[in-house]
């Protein structure tokens, strides 16, 4: 079959252009991260990677991701179930509300939390009377990361669950299945790859969030510096190798994320073809 753009010259030309542009625009920066990290050899890289400062930043980054991902996973499943399996007034508004974290600048996210939980905020002033301090501390960073990443799981699940419809689950109900059985035996197997993908995206963003947490963090060394904030701090201190060491660590995680995503896509694609 003849198709538009299938002439050999057009085809090769466009592929070449795409490869060149991607190399210039994406591959060179990616390679640049690792080049800068190893610019002074392996020893400084290793020294930076194993320093206390980096270890503490890694710890905080993992803590934030570890708390954020389960919360948003559970919320995402409930939200997707709610908006795809039931119709009720306000459903549209709910879906638009959930998109807010996507649409606003991360600095606005940080600001909203600072205004609420900071000393001048109405909730913050009540909490500080009880000696609870969320801002400029890790709990505030977790909260704002939950805000920033809350749409990811739901956004992956909703289109899929909408497309699949609820016929299978309705059949399950007629056969007397309980809610939990229904979810575990029918819904979960249908959505698991989208769920994994949603978790990966949430995790990647939770690890890499910068703008929102920078407002909340207050940059207390050893306490509120996660990896992206450490990258900024070292870079501003003209410690290029140090900054790029942590950047390389984050970039390696990004590559792993992309690889898992590609694997998942390949897997679902193959399943669709054999089905």
């Amino acid at each position: 079959m003849k198709r538009i753009g299938d002439g050999a010259a057009t085809r090769l030309g466009l592929i070449a252009l795409a490869v060149i542009m991607t190399t210039l625009f994406l591959v060179i920066p990616l390679a640049g991260i690792f080049y800068q990290a190893f610019a002074e050899g392996l020893a400084p890289f290793w020294q930076n990677l194993t320093s206390n400062f980096t270890r503490e930043a890694i710890g905080l980054t993992l803590l934030i991701a570890l708390l954020t991902v389960p919360v948003n996973l559970i919320f995402g499943i409930f939200l997707a179930w709610l908006v795809t399996r039931f119709t009720f007034p306000g459903r549209r508004i709910l879906q638009t509300l959930i998109d807010i974290p996507f649409a606003v600048s991360p600095v606005v996210a940080g600001l909203l939390y600072l205004l609420l939980y900071g000393r001048t905020g109405w909730l913050g002033s009540i909490l500080s009377e009880h000696d609870v301090q969320l801002m400029f501390a890790w709990p505030g960073m977790v909260l704002v990361t939950i805000f920033v990443t809350c749409p990811f799981v739901a956004r992956e699940l909703i289109p899929l669950m909408q497309a699949q419809g609820s016929a299978e689950e309705e059949a399950g109900v007629t056969l007397g299945a309980s809610g939990w059985t229904l979810f575990r035996r029918i819904t979960l197997p249908n959505i698991r790859w989208a769920l994994v993908y949603g978790v990966i995206l949430t995790n990647a963003r939770a690890i890499g969030e910068f703008g929102a947490v920078s407002v909340i963090s207050g940059s207390i060394r050893g306490e509120t510096i996660n990896l992206p904030l450490q990258v900024e701090l070292l870079y501003q201190d003209y410690n290029t190798v140090g900054a790029f060491t942590s950047a390389a660590l984050l970039a390696a995680l990004a590559i792993v994320t992309l690889m898992i995503k590609a694997l998942l896509e390949w897997h679902t694609h193959r399943r669709e073809e054999t089905a």
Binding site: L26, L30, I33, G208, T257, K261
Partner: peptide, 21 residues
């Protein structure tokens, strides 16, 4: 897969890399 790199890469990392390059 590379097309998703900008979403997977933390923005601060992209920032210092582009600034350096």
């Amino acid at each position: 897969a590379l097309m998703d790199l900008p979403f997977a890469l933390p923005t601060a990392v992209a920032g210092i890399t582009l600034a350096t390059l």
